[in-house]
Design a protein around this nucleic acid. Structure first.
Lengths: 100, 100
DNA sequence: GACTTATATATCAAATTTGATATATAATAT
DNA sequence: ATATTATATATCAAATTTGATATATAAGTC
């Protein structure tokens, strides 16, 4: 976690005012940020280090770090499921029709 | 869609009674099924054929079919996002702490 | 039945993600 | 200040997913 979420929000708002064409890219990043943050948050609340979580997921600390990094968007559902399971949580994926 | 969801539910229930060790595998499939069904359902409601949706997503009919198939679990968030966007929906990914 | 359209399945190369190692940087404690 | 522990970044091979083509099956229409 390089940056706190609210700091980031303020920053993107400022940048968007300057260049609205970045909107789509920011939205994607925002989604990723949110997942990253949810995992980070839950890991912290579970009192685990990245290394400890990595062991539960049967992977390495570096990979957990990547998953928690704000600009990573390449998740696979399988990966997310493994991580959330290790955190004793479950993954909920919903497709929400616009304006409904 | 080879099979309707409620048919599948009855079937898995029966199989689980016979062999409870299959539980985890079924849960995974269930999650995938749900996503597949959500997409299928939304596509139908949008009055689109797989071929038409494929064009919107800039891919091919066969790939949409794969995404909608009940036993496919290999989704990438990127793929799901492209599809849901084409269906004018948005993707919601939530990590829900157990028993909360 | 023959035609047409929609969907499913198989296969494979290309693209992407993951896991792993090495190493750097940051934070904390002594 | 120097150890120690936690996290971040870089890199790359291995594993997985995607996109594409070809083709099969299913469903609907004439």
């Amino acid at each position: 976690m390089k940056r706190r979420k609210d700091d980031l929000d303020r920053l993107t708002e400022k940048l968007l005012k300057r260049d609205p064409s970045l909107k789509e890219e920011f939205e994607k990043a925002d989604q990723a940020w949110d997942i990253a943050f949810q995992i980070y948050d839950l890991r912290k609340k579970s009192g685990l280090t990245q290394t400890q979580l990595a062991k539960l997921v049967r992977t390495r600390q570096a990979n957990i770090s990547r998953i928690e990094s704000a600009d990573y968007t390449g998740y696979t559902l399988k990966t997310l499921e493994k991580v959330t399971k290790a955190l004793k949580a479950r993954l909920e994926v919903k497709i929400v029709p616009a304006s409904l």
